[in-house]
């Protein structure tokens, strides 16, 4: 087992290319290093440490966007008032990822590339129309996060590409909600969750733990766009059945997930007693 210590992003790309895409990018390690001593199959691999690359740790603003470097941690965003004010769901979701120790190491990009359907960072980024900026020795590529996943743990990132940044367009939102339903308040893997936003760009409803990937719910978005009458949680069910395909697993059941999704979404968007 070996570790590579690139001194900048360019060198990181070169090292990754030289390994033929086999080196594993390592950021906070909060997914990759769980039960490390027992992960025998990983012990022979080469890790490319990204955790000290200053370029990836930067949070920047352009006229039109917030640009989170590919190594920005939850804790960094939680400590940045401008970010939390402009994108409140980053704070809301960030505080619910693990606890301080995880937030201090875990990165938004790691959450994206780990590609868990239960990821909590991904839905809020997707509800803000995030664009993933990838880089390799062969050049740059941009992929909207909502088109990034192809199937369970499958994504359009190629093994020689690094996430250089995640870009969020600056918009005025009049609706921003994030819900995480888990077995307890803290340190829990999500049973189901969603993020929803509304801006001049329209509605975004993004569900997690409801399909093989975190995904946008286009039928629900369309219903909201057209102002279809929604009086009870049940009115959302036909659209939910179109948009997602939850499964029964150790954390919950498909039926529970659909039902609670309809109720929490209804409560968040339509109920007077918010």
């Amino acid at each position: 087992m070996t570790m590579l210590f690139p001194s900048d992003l360019e060198e990181a790309c070169e090292m990754l290319a030289a390994s033929d895409g086999k080196a594993v990018p390592l950021a906070g390690g909060t997914d990759l290093l769980v039960h490390w001593p027992q992960r025998f199959e990983d012990h022979g691999r080469t890790f490319l440490d990204l955790s000290q690359l200053a370029e990836l740790r930067a949070i920047r603003w352009s006229d039109s966007a917030l640009i989170l470097g590919g190594g920005v941690t939850y804790w960094q965003t939680l400590g940045d008032r401008a970010v939390c004010d402009a994108f409140p769901l980053l704070e809301k979701a960030g505080r619910q990822v693990g606890a301080v120790q995880i937030q201090a190491r875990g990165t938004w990009a790691g959450n994206i590339v780990n590609a868990s359907p239960a990821a909590d960072g991904v839905p809020v980024l997707m509800a803000y129309d995030a664009v993933v900026e990838l880089v390799s020795t062969q050049g740059e590529e941009e992929i909207p996060l909502s088109e990034f996943y192809l199937g369970y743990k499958q994504m359009r990132r190629r093994p020689n590409q690094l996430v250089r940044a995640v870009r969020l367009p600056r918009r005025r939102h009049d609706v921003e909600v994030f819900e995480k339903i888990g077995p307890r308040r803290a340190q829990a893997i999500t049973k189901l969750g969603f993020a929803a936003t509304h801006s001049a760009a329209g509605w975004r409803v993004v569900a997690n733990s409801m399909a093989p990937t975190v995904c946008r719910c286009r039928t629900l978005e369309g219903m909201l766009e057209h102002g279809s009458p929604i009086r009870r949680p049940e009115d959302l069910m036909p659209a939910i059945r179109q948009d997602v395909s939850p499964i029964d697993d150790i954390r919950s059941t498909a039926q529970y997930r659909q039902k609670v999704f309809s109720r929490t979404l209804f409560h968040a968007l339509f109920s007077d007693e918010k």
Binding site: F5, G28, G29, T30, W36, F47, D49, Q52, R105
Partner: peptide, 10 residues
């Protein structure tokens, strides 16, 4: 931070 999730090279 959790020292069980950090490799010393980091």
């Amino acid at each position: 931070v959790n020292s069980c999730l950090i490799l010393v090279g980091q």
